[in-house]
Design a protein around this nucleic acid. Structure first.
Lengths: 126, 126
DNA sequence: ATAGTGTATTAAATGACTTAATACACTTAT
DNA sequence: ATAAGTGTATTAAGTCATTTAATACACTAT
């Protein structure tokens, strides 16, 4: 379900959080779907239950999951995370744009990057 | 000369490296200019000399500084870092673009962000 | 010679992350 | 009711990168 990258400098719980989020927003997991239990996912990833717990807690905080004690974690309705997700993406992009803009990259240069990256997506679909 | 942000999660040496780099690429420091000594900058920033040394070493590695043992660190000629700098900015931007693209942000959404951020720059100039 | 450079090394302190071992309350199925 | 499986919380220990501290050495300029 998930593959962890131990060369990545980011903490494990952050990787788990991000990958699960992508499975949800990408539609691989649908609203109402039950998530694997904290313990079982920890076993799958060869990771401590606390680490998975931390990821689940973050995902619930951000509206992607709804937790029911004793039952499990369930993917939330789209309306609960859609807006926040879109906003987070834009904020993330803008922060880097401000950084590279201050670093001297021209608006044209930035547009080039956008074009290249989204052309790349086109190739992936074919 | 530099103000450190202790709320920033990134290590100090990384902040110092980035800020000095911006002073160089931004033209506040010109090729040939002598940098403050490792010890004096460390005093200025209330930071350990090792931390400054690490920043200087990174800047030399990336071509922004030329080090002469016993004399000091000097801002390198533009040709030594110009290309690498431009490339680093593009790579940095592209990595985030791929991330938000995979997260579901449309190409139009990305273009909006570019427009907004560079409009912001226009306002700063006035 | 003396003072100021960059550089290197070793030791200790700090803090975030991770693992480990439990424990408890709740829900479901038997 | 009992047992198994949930989420949740706590405490302790270990790991690792970062940072500080204290030196030491080679080089350069005055």
């Amino acid at each position: 379900m998930i593959i962890l990258d131990y060369r990545d400098k980011r903490p494990l719980y952050e990787q788990v959080t991000e990958k699960l989020m992508l499975l949800i927003t990408g539609g691989a997991l649908s609203p109402g779907d039950r998530m694997p239990s904290v313990r079982s996912l920890a076993l799958d990833l060869s990771v401590n239950p606390n680490t998975v717990q931390r990821a689940y807690a973050q995902l619930e905080q951000d509206g992607y999951l709804t937790t029911i004690t004793g039952r499990g974690n369930y993917v939330s309705e789209k309306k609960l995370w859609q807006a926040g997700h879109e906003n987070a993406l834009r904020t993330q992009l803008k922060e880097v744009l401000e950084k590279v803009r201050d670093g001297g990259l021209s608006e044209e240069g930035a547009r080039d990057c956008v074009r290249e990256v989204y052309e790349e997506q086109g190739r992936m679909r074919s």
